[in-house]
Every structure is written in C-alpha cells, then in structure tokens.
Design a protein around this nucleic acid. Structure first.
Length: 463
RNA sequence: UCCUCGGUAGCUCAGUGGUAGAGCGGUCGGCUGUUAACCGAUUGGUCGUAGGUUCGAAUCCUACCCGGGGAGCCA
C-alpha cells in the first residue's frame, strides 16, 4: 500500500517526496494553464490541493471527469505550495478515475446545504465537511468513553438487546416477534397466544441495560454498558431517536458521592480527549455550527461542577427573578427551563442536582433517611439541560420490595433483581447517558438526527 | 400527542388576487497560482396533493401529505 492518508500528508508530509492519495473530488478550479482539484478522503477536515498540468496525457478528458464527487487515485510529487492556504500540495503525475459523478445529477454541490436537505441524502451526506467532522468527533468520543472506563478498571459488559422484561419503566418498547402478524394465533380468551411466539412469551428490544449491569457489577465490581437502545415513543424532537446508543456505568461498593465524582471525571475526560484528537473538527464546529462549543468544552474541563440538592435548587428557582412557564414547587420535577436556568444563569457552569423527591424518581433509587427523597443525581449543563442521570441503587431488600409494590408493580417480575439484594447485597451506584446527546453537546449540533449515521425516528427508517 | 412555522428552479429563498423571480449550482466562453476562485453569457418551474371561491389563484378557503422549530415524555 503506497497510498497515504490526506491527514498524514497535510500534517507531516515532506515536500519533494512522492505521494499517492485516494479519495473523492470536492471541488475543481480550472484555470487557463492548469487545474486545481481538491480531494478529500475523510481522514481529516481539510482537502489536499492537487495541481493537474496539461502535460498529463488526456488532460482535457481527465479534467472533464474530475467533477465534484468523483472517486480518484492520484500519484504525484508532494511539493511546497507557492500560494497561501496550504503548506503542501500534490503535483499530479498520474490520475486514475474510478467512479465519476455526473455534475448534472450529483446532489452535493460546491455550496452549503441545509441539514434538513442532507437528511434526505443519508447515503451521501458523510461526504460533506460537517458530517465528516461529526463522524470523526463521534468516533473520538466513543473511543474516549472506552478509554476512560478501561483505565479505571471497568469491564465493558454486553447486556442483552432482546429482553422479556417489560417493566423497566424507561419508556415505550418495541415488541419483537416471529409470529406471522397476518395470521396471529389466539388463546381461547381471544388474546394473542405468545406461547407460540419465539420465546414462548412477549419479547421486546431493550430500553436500558441498567438492571443487567447491576447483576454484573455485583460480581465484577465495576462495569459499564455501551450499546444500542430502543424506545418506541412517538417523540418527534431534535433530542429523540428510536434507536440510540447508551452508556451506563455501574459500581459496587459505591454511594452517590462516588457516582457524582465519576460522572464529573467522565465528562472532563471525554471533552479533553475529543479536543486532543479532533482539534480541527472542533474548531470547525465552533466556527460554523455554534460559536460557544470551544468555550463550553474548556469550561467543562476546567471548572468544578456545582453540587446542590433538589430542595436547594427549588429554593433558588423560587427566589429567582426570572419568569418560568412552569410552576416551581417542591415535589414537581424540574422542567428544561429550570435546568437551563440553574446551569446557564445562576451558576453558569455544570450543576449536579441531588436528592430528588421520592415521588418523581424510579423505584430502584435508594431511599434517603428522610424518606422524602432518593439518592438520585442529574448532571445539568448549559444549553442542553440534563446530560447525565444517575443514582445510588436501593440495596435493602425490604425497602426495595416496598418501593416496587408502592408503584403498583408485581414483585414476581423482579425476582432476580430482588435476589441481588437477598444474597451479598452491597451499596452500589451508577448513571446513564445517551451517547448521541453527548455528541450533540460536544459539537453544538442542534438536531440529534445529525449526530448519528442513520437516524431512526417515527415514520423514518431510510438508508 | 399538542402548539407553531413552512412546502415556489438541482439547492437557499423572494414573490400576499393580474405575464414565474434572485443568488448559488449546472452548461458554454474568458481569465498567468486559484482557495465556497473570479468575470460574462446561458440553462432551468405540474408554485406539496386534491377540491373550492374568483373574470383571473403561487397568493384566498377546506381537507390531506410532508418537513422544520417548540412543548410534553425521556436519554
């Protein structure tokens, strides 16, 4: 393989050495004496400028074929560029045209396109500057997530995608079946007979790996999940996907404070890693997408997060000289506007709110001694609101049974979850965050559909 | 699901009852090193769909379809 990446050539390529690149033409500028072609291979944001001289065989034919979108291999000599704008450029000696792209019909033009339009071109939008930058940042972010946990002794555990647990309480579930939907079997009572289905009972796509992660943590001490998650809610918003990736660390012998420390360290680590690995891409987002992206990243990395209780947060909000659309009252959940006020206006930094009322949080969160609140924590950040939600889990069998029943749920469905409290129970804690929302927060991208290669949303599953 | 805004050329949009427009893109020509190159010319339309009002509808009315933004729910 004599071919080099454009990223490597632009960064460290030495002038007056031979080089071969493979990629796609972004733009062609034809002058009287020769032609400039900019080629991108996805390894970095910048294109490599190639000079095509008329001395090349079939010059006219070559240049005509080098329209935007064409796949090419170009051999030549890397030379110092005599003009501003690039350190080096490639003086072509041989050009191989692979697939050409008819400029009359190729949808990507040499101009800015709206993200809305590019969403209709899911197969071509990775070839744009914005999506190239976004996918590189997404990759760096994913790699940083693994590195963060691996360096701290967490095991990556693979929790199931198919589940029979319809009681995770985290949202609407997709049903998975091998039954012929046009000829469903029925019980004598007239209901669908799931005994004849693949698993002999109803099955679903997972909405969370947390409960299974707790199983693993109570044997392996520190684990995390990082995998696909599915929600069938008909939420048509810039923050929701039907298929998304979720990260859920879980730690045995850990309380809420350890959980908060981990969450804060996690965000700082990931932001620093992405800045280190994708400086050009992040600069691009700061320049073209959201001018606060870099400042936000610096703040996340350098500023200690504020930590307050829900009760104090309510007090702050009630004393705030700020009109809220929704009421602020102890016992009600914080709305987006409240979360953003805390992070953006009051503290102007990330805020971890803890100890929420028992009535608005899930049954598995540990009941505090006041019996009014649970050991929950939400990390609120400017511009986004809640980015991480977590809790210390209820490890006491009798309390957990009471909580499950108190929410009208059947204990039988949780027999194995209760067993964890019956045998070798221990205080443990964890949190969850949506990977795409993290990428949104990093890049400033407004719509979650533009931070995942192939978004799945209600009535939309193209590509 | 609710609220709201929108759908006009390949793209981004203007046009609010009287001949369908601009910029960009594409094409052709020009240009001695360009950087979203530049200059000139040119090409380009079932005005989302179906009805209705009117002498006349992109424009007004009704229904539907699709999309954006916001809310709720959540990650």
């Amino acid at each position: 393989m004599t071919c080099q990446t454009i990223a490597a050539l632009l960064a460290t390529g030495r002038p007056d050495t031979p080089a071969t690149i493979q990629g796609w033409v972004r733009t062609r500028r034809e002058l009287k004496e020769f032609t400039f072609v900019e080629v991108n291979d996805g390894t970095c944001l910048a294109n490599l400028q190639v000079v095509i001289n008329p001395s090349l065989a079939n010059y006219r034919q070559l240049v005509d074929g080098l329209g935007t979108g064409t796949a090419v291999e170009i051999q030549g000599q890397l030379v110092a560029s005599p003009a501003k704008g690039q350190r080096v450029e490639l003086q072509a000696t041989q050009v191989t045209l692979y697939g050409t792209a008819d400029p009359e019909t190729y949808p990507l033009q040499k101009k800015r396109h709206s993200f809305e339009f590019l969403r209709t071109l899911g197969h071509l939008r990775p070839r744009t500057n914005s999506f190239g930058a976004m996918f590189r940042v997404r990759n760096a972010c994913a790699a940083a997530v693994h590195r963060f946990f691996q360096e701290r002794g967490f095991l990556w555990v693979h929790t199931p995608i198919l589940t029979a647990s319809d009681c995770e309480g985290a949202g609407e579930m997709f049903t998975v079946t091998s039954l012929d939907l046009d000829h469903l079997p029925y019980t004598p009572a007239g209901r669908v007979d799931y005994q004849q289905d693949f698993f002999g009972r109803p099955a679903y796509l997972t909405v969370s790996g947390q409960l299974e992660a707790e199983i693993m943590a109570l044997a392996l001490s520190r684990v995390y999940t990082f995998g696909p998650t599915f929600r069938a809610e008909k939420s048509n918003t810039s923050r929701h996907l039907a298929e998304f990736w979720m990260i859920e660390p879980e730690m045995a012998f850990c309380d809420l404070h350890g959980d908060m420390d981990l969450a804060e360290a996690f965000l700082k680590f990931v932001f620093q890693a992405v800045l280190d690995h994708c400086p050009e891409d992040m600069a691009f987002f700061n320049q073209r997408i959201d001018p606060t992206v870099l400042a936000t990243a610096e703040q996340i990395i350098q500023t200690p997060f504020e930590r307050i209780t829900y009760t104090d947060a309510i007090r702050h909000l009630q004393n705030a000289n700020h009109p809220f659309e929704y009421p602020v009252e102890w016992g009600l959940d914080l709305q987006s506007e409240h979360e953003r006020y805390l992070a953006e206006v009051l503290f102007q930094r990330p805020v971890i709110v803890t100890d929420y009322p028992v009535g608005i949080k899930a049954f598995y969160m540990r009941l505090n001694d006041d019996e009014q609140t649970v050991a929950a924590m939400d990390v609120l950040v400017p511009r986004v609101g809640e980015i991480i939600g977590g809790s210390q889990r209820e490890e006491r069998l009798n309390v957990l049974e009471r909580r499950i029943q108190g929410q009208g749920l059947a204990l039988d469905n949780y027999w194995w979850y209760l067993d964890l409290r019956r045998y070798g129970s221990v205080p443990h804690a964890g949190f969850g965050l949506g990977f795409e929302r993290l990428v949104q927060f990093l890049t400033g991208m407004g719509n979650i559909r533009d931070v995942i290669p192939f978004p799945r949303t209600p009535d939309s599953i193209d590509f």
